[in-house]
């Protein structure tokens, strides 16, 4: 499998580490135990198109949001995580 890193270009699978479903959002500090439990433990097991977190540890160390079909391994989109890359000066 090959992933096109927005910073480095197309790279081989071995440079990346898989984390998992990118959908769950970390709950706010006051969201309560049930919300955090869902966030930590409950995952959809999707047969089809899924948004996933991948880490380009063998390259630029960016966290990426990869849209992948788990049945075909086809990757339809790759975007950098919101905080990836250098801080924007003056932003």
């Amino acid at each position: 499998m090959r992933i096109t890193c927005p910073f480095c270009g197309e790279r081989e699978l071995g440079e990346f580490t898989y984390l998992g479903d990118a959908k769950p959002q970390r709950p706010a500090a006051d969201a309560g135990e049930d919300a955090v439990y869902d966030y930590v433990y409950l995952r959809d097991n999707i047969a089809g198109v899924m948004s996933e977190h991948w880490y380009h540890g063998g390259g630029c160390r960016a966290w990426l949001k990869v849209t992948r079909n788990t049945l075909t391994h086809e990757i339809s989109a790759v975007e950098a995580a919101a905080g990836a890359g250098a801080a924007k000066v003056g932003a």
Binding site: H53, A62, A81, G83, A87
Partner: peptide, 22 residues
């Protein structure tokens, strides 16, 4: 060492992108 770096990058880039930290 490597895993903590990966974890901290996840926290920085994904969980807390609003923080000014590198």
């Amino acid at each position: 060492a490597g895993l903590v770096m990966q974890h901290l990058e996840f926290c920085r880039q994904v969980l807390f992108p609003e923080l000014d930290v590198q």
